[in-house]
Amino acid sequence: MTADIGIRTSPLAAWTDRLAALEPALTAVERPFLTQLTVRVSDPVAVAGMGGALGVAFPAHPCTSTRGRGPFGDVEVLWLGPDEFLVVAAPDSSVPVEDALRTALRPARGVVVDTSAQRTTVALSGPHARDVLAHGCAVDLHPSVAPTGTCVQTLLARTGIILRVADAGSGAFTVLVRSSFAEYLAAWLSDACVEYRAALS
């Protein structure tokens, strides 16, 4: 019994076609294997230092996120709690990013943990992305209250998600969902889209 770690299968690999069929009402694309690092730190100096190491300042306010480009490419930092952040970077960059964050953390106390396998990412856009989300999520996503960069942890169809507003103007969202719930969420998205697919066809 050996595991072939050379071949990875993303949680929604089997759903690519079914998600593609939701076009044009909803564009749902999995972004598999993104590097995700959970950071627990409360020292403001260390938080600033870690932001400097990534080239992206950590979000200063609850339920927000920051995005930028630095030495590790495009990086997003999501606010998860008053002393908790999620750093999202390109696939297969977890080791260098983790090292950089650990170095920047010292001598303050905190933890940097690779949680890349915990969640997968689904990018949602299209004319009805906001409507479809409203079927299962009570958070107000109107651009006036949820501008670009808003990042909330909430329930979508009873599934715990991290929802980031990627572009409030065009209605683009990023949903991070636990890997084991990803197929359920994809099935729910397909179902929630039915009425919009009929309207557009």
Partner: peptide, 10 residues
């Protein structure tokens, strides 16, 4: 107190 008003089920 951190996230603002949310549904009771959360």
């Amino acid at each position: 107190p951190w996230c603002g008003p949310r549904e009771e089920t959360e």
